Simulated scan of single mutants.
Amino acid sequence: MAGTRTNYTIHQARAILAKHGMTIKSVDGEYIVNFKGAKTETSAYYATNLLDAIGTGIDMAERKAIKLVVAGEVVPDMEIACAHAAEIFMTTGVVVAIEYV
């Protein structure tokens, strides 16, 4: 992941995740990780542990291509996947699982 360290500052986390095209912010004791340029929070990951946030952010960046299992359609990023899953749910009532491929 980000080396073998177990403690980072938010500034160090920002620098690490920026190299992977991700952003992180701290709000009320939570860390919010998202794709750089994401227009909504639908693709965001929330964590209370900074190390978890860093690791998950790197993992999210490495798994950009995701597959909507029910729809069987590959989409380019989590934001689009979430929007598509929500649209399917709203029109059909079917809950769509999102799976990394």
Rank of each mutant, 00 (worst) to 15 (best):
residue 30 E to I: 01
residue 54 I to L: 14
residue 23 T to M: 07
residue 38 A to M: 09
residue 94 V to C: 09
residue 89 F to W: 13
residue 40 T to Y: 05
residue 64 K to G: 13
residue 90 M to C: 09
residue 33 V to C: 09
residue 34 N to L: 06
residue 13 A to H: 06
residue 68 L to M: 10
residue 14 R to T: 00
residue 70 V to Q: 13
residue 79 E to G: 08
residue 30 E to R: 15
residue 17 L to I: 02
residue 94 V to N: 12
residue 53 A to N: 11
residue 72 G to W: 07
residue 27 V to L: 13
residue 45 Y to M: 12
residue 49 N to T: 00
residue 26 S to N: 08
residue 65 A to T: 06
residue 24 I to G: 06
residue 27 V to D: 12
residue 83 A to G: 04
residue 58 I to C: 11
residue 21 G to I: 02
residue 43 S to I: 00
residue 101 V to Q: 13
residue 35 F to L: 09
residue 88 I to D: 00
residue 93 G to F: 10
residue 33 V to Y: 08
residue 33 V to K: 13
residue 11 H to E: 07
residue 98 I to H: 11
residue 96 V to T: 12
residue 24 I to M: 09
residue 61 A to E: 05
residue 5 R to P: 00
residue 47 A to F: 03
residue 2 A to V: 00
residue 27 V to E: 11
residue 25 K to R: 15
residue 3 G to E: 05
residue 93 G to L: 07
residue 19 K to Y: 03
residue 40 T to I: 03
residue 29 G to V: 00
residue 35 F to P: 01
residue 89 F to H: 14
residue 50 L to R: 11
residue 44 A to G: 06
residue 33 V to N: 10
residue 97 A to D: 04
residue 85 A to Q: 06
residue 77 D to N: 15
residue 36 K to L: 11
residue 52 D to V: 09
residue 30 E to F: 10
residue 60 M to H: 11
residue 95 V to Q: 12
residue 57 G to W: 05
residue 49 N to A: 10
residue 91 T to W: 04
residue 12 Q to V: 01
residue 9 T to H: 09
residue 37 G to S: 08
residue 64 K to S: 10
residue 63 R to L: 02
residue 44 A to M: 01
residue 97 A to R: 14
residue 84 H to V: 02
residue 22 M to A: 11
residue 45 Y to W: 11
residue 94 V to P: 00
residue 34 N to C: 07
residue 71 A to W: 03
residue 89 F to Q: 07
residue 70 V to M: 12
residue 65 A to E: 02
residue 95 V to G: 08
residue 29 G to F: 04
residue 19 K to L: 11
residue 37 G to I: 01
residue 11 H to W: 06
residue 37 G to T: 02
residue 29 G to E: 01
residue 101 V to F: 13
residue 48 T to L: 06
residue 4 T to N: 11
residue 93 G to E: 00
residue 79 E to H: 05
residue 1 M to R: 14
